[in-house]
Design a protein around this nucleic acid. Structure first.
Lengths: 348, 348
DNA sequence: TTGAAAGCGTTACCAT
DNA sequence: ATGGTAACGCTTTCAA
């Protein structure tokens, strides 16, 4: 039982397929009599016609699909990004194909391959590892591509990222404003710019406040390291440098830190002030002060940019930096104030 | 500049398009000489051939795409669901189209329309509102469809959901085991089965323990209500029934509850034990005991089921209930134990 | 073992 | 104002 096609409509309405196409697509340059139009529209509803995008994409070279490649969706940050992208897709009457890579180059390649085979109109790469062949593929196929949340290749591609230098700087300045002078940072080993930028912002804030940037006060762990794993390092650092506050590269690292602190019987914020990053649900639960990235706006900005580039390839490359906002919750206080605060987290 | 097609390969290899198709699809029923095969494969790589799925889907009636309709991705629960779905898509060499509805029937209809136009091979509907026409559309188009996380239409469709009756029962039994006798529940107004089932499980646990199910001890708010909004109701309930523990229908409601409790200067778990539901990141941050649903497994089970049904329409309808697991963290204690615990959450 | 040709649903160009 | 027709890339049937 075949689906109804424009030919069926044409037959029922007693017109040609071309006329049906004109009516259905509302083309202006072709004039159709009202009577014909009504007959066609009528036949279409009677036959429950549903256009076949596969066919029109196949013919016209526009699939009305974009490919979205994510590392994962663990974090509510990625969820919100996705949501922003979706909203714009709807506007542009398009649909998005989603893939996850788990930051594995091979999976990333696979994802892009799939999308290219499905002839997506454009590609949105989120926090990619960018080590695969796909990078060349995208160029040789000259498919519109916007990179999201990483500025590494801003020279070559459109990029939408958040202004992490400013976000981190602002967060650390807040800690300084509270009276902290010895502020550590918890980062992780990553080839991507967001983490690097956060460190840059962190150091800039220290320098501008006339504070020394002691190299050992920055603790970098591996991405998958557990708090048990680097707890020792952490307390070595604390013993050696006596920081009173920590800026964490993500809410997850802030969480790990808080866990380690609790394990030693110490408290946040009384003993250490902490700021996280990305305003995830985890941070909400922790009552953690954090740097909010307007992920929905980032997603929609990137998607909009992508659709613009799809519409006209030959426009200038852009690098859009989205502003951040400090969300003040209960994980920070002055280094002097002790024992009067509600506290954060709980025993695990 | 056209993309390379099988015709180009055929020309370069000096064979026909049909032969190219045979080689590329590795068909067994056609025998191809090794020499020809090599020539074709060679030409394909030289021309950087990439199959056009739009074309093959268009022709063969199989798009290698499934449609996934979500209400939102606010929660890490949905993120994990998505991940499970993705994994299976990869296995079946398919791709998923994603849409969000914000539980708005019109957006839901729109999403399904889009997917049907894109000729997805099947549909995965997650926590849908199911009020739209699409319900009929799916039937008349007889497109494979699996419903995820809601059992309302288990009589008509394949359903994969979590065993929320058991999950809730287990959680409440845990509270009873701790010595609680007066246990309230926080739910919200929803037409979907998960919330209703959690209430059923809650009441079953009370009954089986010989405890009375006082109707007023169940507090139902609207989905978008703020803790400020129902705080009064909550404390009315507390005054009237003096519960010592609460079972919340979601981690979000548990969070709201905790906030309200803190606003009154009371504490969790010292004054009230609380259990949430779904094991979200929010709950992790809150150090909240909660009922974990293996969302990744749910997603992959549902997707597997969908692909099976795509492969053969005529198999029996199924209703798969996934087990849950109680995650014990720091939000519960015996009703007697006071003042000795680490506490949960913090001042907002 | 291979090739020719038809057909899928759509759109766009060029006639009428 | 409308219709005929070619073209898109692929698969498959049938014939050689």
């Amino acid at each position: 039982m075949r689906k109804t096609s424009t030919r069926d409509i044409a037959n029922l309405a007693g017109v040609s397929q071309a006329t049906v196409s004109y009516v259905l697509n509302g083309r202006q340059d072709q004039s159709i009599s009202d009577q014909t139009r009504r007959r066609v529209l009528d036949a279409a509803t009677r036959l429950r016609y549903r256009p076949n995008r596969l066919a029109s994409g196949f013919f016209g070279g526009r699939s009305s699909m974009i490919g979205v490649v994510f590392p994962c969706v663990d974090s509510s940050f990625f969820g919100r990004l996705l949501f922003g992208i979706q909203e714009v897709c709807l506007e542009y009457d398009s649909v998005s194909i989603l893939s996850f890579t788990q930051t594995d180059p091979q999976q990333e390649q696979r994802a892009v391959d799939q999308m290219l085979e499905h002839r997506v109109d454009g590609l949105l790469m989120v926090s990619g590892v960018y080590t695969g062949m796909w990078f060349d593929d995208v160029r040789t196929e000259s498919i519109p591509c916007v990179l999201l949340d990483d500025r590494t290749h801003a020279a070559t591609y459109d990029v939408v990222a958040s202004d992490d230098v400013a976000g981190a700087k602002n967060a650390v300045e807040y800690l300084i404003g509270l009276g902290h002078r010895r502020i550590g940072m918890l980062g992780y080993n990553s080839p991507l710019t967001p983490v690097r930028d956060r460190r840059i912002g962190y150091e800039a804030a220290l320098r501008e406040a006339g504070l020394e940037v002691e190299p050992g006060i920055y603790l970098e762990c591996e991405w998958d390291e557990t708090p048990e794993g680097y707890g020792t390092l952490l307390f070595d650092l604390i013993d050696r440098y006596a920081p009173t506050a920590f800026f964490a590269a993500t809410d997850y690292h802030a969480h790990d830190f808080i866990k380690a602190v609790h394990q030693r019987g110490l408290r946040v914020p009384e003993d250490f002030s902490v700021i996280g990053y990305s305003d995830t649900e985890l941070g909400t639960g922790l009552n953690l002060s954090t740097v909010r990235q307007d992920a929905v706006a980032m997603g929609s900005t990137a998607a909009t940019r992508l659709f613009e580039r799809i519409a006209s390839q030959d426009r200038e490359r852009c690098e859009i930096l989205m502003p951040t906002e400090l969300v003040v919750r209960g994980s920070c206080c002055s280094p002097q104030a002790k024992g009067v605060l509600a506290g954060v987290g709980g025993k695990q």
